[in-house]
Design a protein around this nucleic acid. Sequence first.
DNA 1: ATACTTGCAAATGATTTGCCAGTGT
DNA 2: ACACTGGCAAATCATTTGCAAGTAT
Lengths: 158, 158
Amino acid sequence: MTVSSLRSPVHADTLDAAFDVVRSEGLRLSATRRMVLQALFAADGPLTAERIATGLDGRFPPLEVASVYRNLETFESIGLVRHVHLGHGAGRYALTRAGEREYVLCEACGDARALPPAELDDVRAAVRAATGLDARFSHFPIVGVCATCREEGRRAHP
Amino acid sequence: MTVSSLRSPVHADTLDAAFDVVRSEGLRLSATRRMVLQALFAADGPLTAERIATGLDGRFPPLEVASVYRNLETFESIGLVRHVHLGHGAGRYALTRAGEREYVLCEACGDARALPPAELDDVRAAVRAATGLDARFSHFPIVGVCATCREEGRRAHP
DNA sequence: ATACTTGCAAATGATTTGCCAGTGT
DNA sequence: ACACTGGCAAATCATTTGCAAGTAT
């Protein structure tokens, strides 16, 4: 796998809907899988496997990281989950629930925003014109310096 | 460090010019450093530290990977070198010699292209309009599907 | 001479894998 | 019942670090 995920996103808007997706793929719905999904639904942004494994810092029972990785990979293969790289360090996983998300990261302040793809359609058109590529910013974010940091002359993260 | 490099690019178009840059920064020009730079100059694209350490598969004497990493980091800190992430796996390092480069990657065939920033100015303008960010595609590439792969219906890398 | 560098080994962080016991269907 | 999963330990990959010995200036 270069970078991309294999299947189109699956829109499971609720925990139960996600459970159904798992079952409908012929996969088993174990306690571990339920917890992973629950953590993903409870999160406000993409999570590292580590953070899921610690049950969002104790909010949920702890899991084996290896199992978390295995399940995230499984979920990714059926389009339920995607992962992004927000800078160096561990990848971050999120549900594709309300459709794909694309990311924008300020390298100066470290702030990351998730956007619905429609907001980047002009960017996509410009990329297409310049390179022929049909671009997607869901695996690697658009990296740059945000307006605020630019004004304050910030260039790199502390 | 989030993602970015610290200093503006240094244009050393020849090996000797690069040596001078190293010296002029008050750094020592060791045999190892000379070899790393030589490998980078001999390369056609960005290299992994591993590949530099093996002397481009035997074309040059082998080096310690740890030293290679240390030197690449040093060179990066003075703007002589930058590294990109082309998909998963090891980062790839290249000279900034002829100015910054930005990257475009097809996630279906794995093909990566390096472009002079000017070719992406329209993209940058679109990103600015959509997000306020001043974007750089030199650390994370623009990822998407190229025209050829799109026509052939390819979606993910073998 | 002396501070900067290297080599080598060991540590770290992220992710994967093997294997056998456990369990969802 | 039986194939799919989980736990746990160990392996792997990319990168970093500690420290004593070597060397550029």
